[in-house]
Design a binder for these strands. Structure first.
Lengths: 116, 116
DNA sequence: GGAAAATGGAACGTTAGCGTAACGATCTTC
DNA sequence: GAAGATCGTTACGCTAACGTTCCATTTTCC
């Protein structure tokens, strides 16, 4: 049975990681974009616009625009689904993997600092 | 000596908490705004525009605009410093405390789910 | 085959973010 | 007290976000 996080530890972790991320990377993602990005990389594919919209409880254009922006940043990619050509399959990229790898490191550093 | 977070745990924690936060709150803060908000609430005052800009390594207008927006959202407040009237002291609000309390709960829930 | 449904995106007007540069107000220095 | 430095904000032109609505393409269902 692990020891539970205190409120102070939870927010301290978030604070430190957010701060480090802001300091070392110019790309200022919104929480929505971040949730989309993480979902794409952590949940087994395939991922579609409609599916992400339902998952995040936002409208489809929100997803489309987030993918536009993050695509421009090199964090995600889009490919038409050949099985059902109405669908667009969202793909991972090397840039996105690197971005999240770095974020993961920052979070782990904070956890270490806070002795979580 | 605590067990260290794995990369998967770190990102999974961030993913789950970001997702829940997006789902239950319309206010879509950027990572910069979030870092500012957390800094104000977790680091002892006083907080100034200049100080925050230096801490986050961003320009002053970025802080001013973030405070405008978050002030409108009821998350922070601003007061002129009577000791040096060039300064503006950034104050905490009930709304901001509630927002972060909720965020902390979401993070802790995720940590519990991931058995961190 | 033809109607209906579903998907992702575009269009519209609005709002909010950015960096750079300038501003008025205030304090410090001489 | 005048000159300069410092503080937060505003202005500018631009980019990107929003919600709503509508649309072209593709699939499904009789």
């Amino acid at each position: 049975m692990p020891i539970e996080l205190t409120a102070s530890q939870a927010l301290g972790l978030w604070h430190g990681a957010a701060l480090d991320q802001v300091r070392h990377d110019d790309r200022d993602l919104t929480l929505r974009q971040m949730a989309i990005l993480l979902h794409i990389y952590l949940v087994p594919p395939p991922h579609t616009v409609r599916g992400l919209a339902a998952t995040l409880d936002v409208t489809k254009p929100v997803i489309t625009r987030a993918l536009d922006t993050m695509g421009e940043m090199g964090l995600v990619d889009r490919v038409r689904d050949d099985a059902d050509r109405r669908n667009v399959i969202i793909k991972r990229t090397v840039g996105g993997a690197l971005y999240l790898e770095k974020l993961g490191d920052l979070i782990r550093d904070q956890a270490r600092r806070l002795r979580i």
